[in-house]
Design a protein around this nucleic acid. Structure first.
Lengths: 342, 342
DNA sequence: TTATAATAAGAGAACGGTTTCAAAAAGGAA
DNA sequence: TTCCTTTTTGAAACCGTTCTCTTATTATAA
């Protein structure tokens, strides 16, 4: 219908050059008050909005941040993304949402496509790429921050995480303090940093208590509820190696385990203590009451958002590394109990 | 470091004009095989990627779809967005994720900003805007499709929804068939189309059964778990008007209600039957086993994605309306029971 | 009043592609 | 070979901004 109104239309109408119109928009203080008001009036009347593509062609800024997570359907990522989006929005930025589903190739492709699309920055939620790939992508100079995931050469990158080793340690220590000695570890995808670190914390606590770490107590698969259920059944039927407590590397799996207990008629916490990791909203529900290690997910998200925006907006900070490690927090609810005398 | 390689570099290197390079990329069949291969080789060597801003400046396509939902933290939207993203991705499109938190003003601002950013299309998940505002925004000619929400003048827009009236009717009918007569309605934000329609279905079923619709049985608030809990407490303490069954307008609230029952020591389904709406993944969990009305959320998402892509890619279809109404499906699990003899 | 500095505005070149139109090259028929 | 048609290419305009110079204007100091 009516053609898009451009900066030229405004310039002509206001009787000035387009350079002046541009200045009114970007450096208002550089144009005389009178002219400025005249131009502003025309802009208002014609309801002019600068074309963002043309604009970013010269400014080399797109006003978008890419956010890649493995699965938005996972409540942990949902709340993280939510708060990332909130901070970006406060800067007038939009976010591209990318779900990699945990597949490594997808992830690399996604990040590549983000770089090609020239996003101003990238937030990498749990990722599986190896150092080689990351190095490669980093060459593109697009600011990146890792969140809730540690890249291999951590000192070279920006990240905001919670101390997973400490978290695993705290969780296991807590179970030990309740008198448990047969404690299983229920983990996610093996080579993932989250998995490896939480496992390390688990081992450390056991060793410190002088308890042998046995492979029979270690169950891994992927960070999903179904996996928690599946492995849970195995755990409950482990016979000789059936544990009295389980540390689950995330809440989703812990809830799956809870289901397994329900199915097998095992009472929690009387017969089995369970502690999770993440503190997703559901864990607090009166129906679940999961004792867990809190990641303060929302803070993780908003801080990573702030860091990426900081880097994007202040190019000179491009090469100063911001590396934040949150302390994990034990949230005691109803799924752990002191062990009964044998 | 090394400057971005442009189409000019390729043209020079390959000894052709940039028009030819452009053609190799966009209309390969229009350039002689020999030249094409020569150009392709140089492109490969230099790892050239066309600048998307420059490109979209002339093509007037950005390759992005805006998706606005009220809260990605709500599993219903998470699932929906996930599948929208999947189809967009298959077309090499990215999505902007927007959370309005159900605030009307936010919503309008968001859609406006999407239009200004020149997204190629918009998918509007549950929205609260009134017809006036929608009309206004529609003038921008950006293709839009409504999903899981009916705009006021439905015949003018594209949408994909499930028949909420029918869903409410089925749910209530099912409770009636189990012998219940004191059935409460637990609803979300009042003026929302989802709320109104599900309520209508509820009323219709009751009237059809010759049962009076009483205000005392109608509880509303917002579509969140906490609200389900809060209202749930009220429902359970309603004394004379305490129902024997509740139809909750979404699963999140139903789960909140389940919590309330847990807290008040009310057994489900023995003392109270509960039926939800949506069928979010959690409802299927062995811990919840919620009987509900399924929206086939993933299909809702992917179909709306396909429709918006169709409109974006085939401009001549711009003015043909696609209006899809999915049938709701009753999913019977464990939260409803036949009423006991009084 | 005049010289000088500071401020305001404009012309036009980027930015990196696509597209139109005309010219050149190649192919085919007589 | 010559003429006509078809295919292949290139030159230049255009998309809508920002930005760098210049030039014109105004303010300030001598």
């Amino acid at each position: 219908m009516d053609k898009e109104v451009t900066i030229n239309d405004i310039a002509r109408e206001a009787g000035v050059s387009k350079a002046t119109v541009s200045r009114v928009l970007n450096n208002p203080e550089k144009v005389a008050k009178k002219t400025r008001e005249k131009v502003l009036k025309v802009i208002q009347e014609k309801n002019y909005r600068p074309n963002p593509m043309a604009r970013s062609l010269t400014t080399r800024k797109t006003g978008v941040i890419g956010v890649v997570v493995s699965d938005i359907t996972n409540p942990f990522y949902a709340v993280m993304v939510r708060s990332i989006e909130e901070v970006c929005r406060s800067y007038q930025y939009h976010i591209f949402l990318c779900n990699t589903d945990g597949r490594e190739e997808e992830e690399e492709l996604y990040v590549k496509s983000l770089i090609e699309k020239k996003v101003d920055g990238i937030i990498l939620g749990a990722t599986r790429m190896n150092d080689q790939e990351i190095q490669n992508l980093a060459k593109a100079q697009t600011p990146m921050v890792f969140v809730s995931r540690l890249p291999e050469n951590r000192e070279q990158y920006d990240y905001v995480i919670v101390d997973s080793v400490l978290g695993g340690y705290l969780a296991t220590k807590y179970l030990l303090s309740l008198g448990h000695t047969k404690i299983a570890y229920l983990g996610g995808h093996w080579p993932t940093s989250s998995n490896l670190e939480r496992l390390e914390g688990y081992k450390r606590a056991l060793e410190e208590a002088g308890i042998e770490v046995r492979d029979e107590y270690i169950y891994c698969g992927e960070f999903r509820m179904e996996n928690g259920y599946r492995e849970g059944i195995k755990i409950l039927r482990a016979g000789k190696y059936r544990p009295t407590a389980v540390f689950s590397a995330n809440d989703a799996m812990a809830i799956g385990l809870l289901e397994a207990c329900n199915e097998e008629g095992v009472r929690v916490p009387e017969e089995l203590s369970i502690i999770g990791f993440d503190d997703i909203p559901l864990s607090a529900s009166r129906l679940i009451q999961l004792t867990t290690v809190s990641q303060s997910t929302a803070e993780l998200g908003s801080l990573s958002g702030k860091i990426i925006m900081d880097k994007v907006l202040n190019p000179r900070k491009k090469d100063v590394r911001q590396q934040i490690v949150f302390p994990p927090k034990l949230v005691i609810r109803g799924t752990c109990a002191r062990i009964k005398e044998e």
